[in-house]
Amino acid sequence: MEGDIAELGKYIGVGLTAIGMGGAAMGVGNVAGNFLSGALRNPSAAASQTATLFIGMAFAEALGIFSFLVALLLMFAV
């Protein structure tokens, strides 16, 4: 029975950790949206900044991937 409670806690923890990925989604969306609004204001400068866009997206996404990793570790390794 205590094993079941541990299992329950584990899955609740996994679910809570997965919320972190929502934050990363907002972050990436924010980066892309702001890039787009800036690009529409000044389209000639947009092409030179796509590398910066991807770097920013990668950094924002990395934190989401961390929470995904913690969720996976909880689910399979703990």
């Binding site: 990668a58 950094f59 996404e61 990395a62 991937i65 961390f66 995904f68 990793l69 996976l72």
Partner: peptide, 13 residues
């Protein structure tokens, strides 16, 4: 850490 986990995490997910 982020450099490696980003790639593997994205592909695996």
């Amino acid at each position: 850490v982020s450099h490696s986990i980003r790639l593997a995490g994205n592909v695996m997910a």
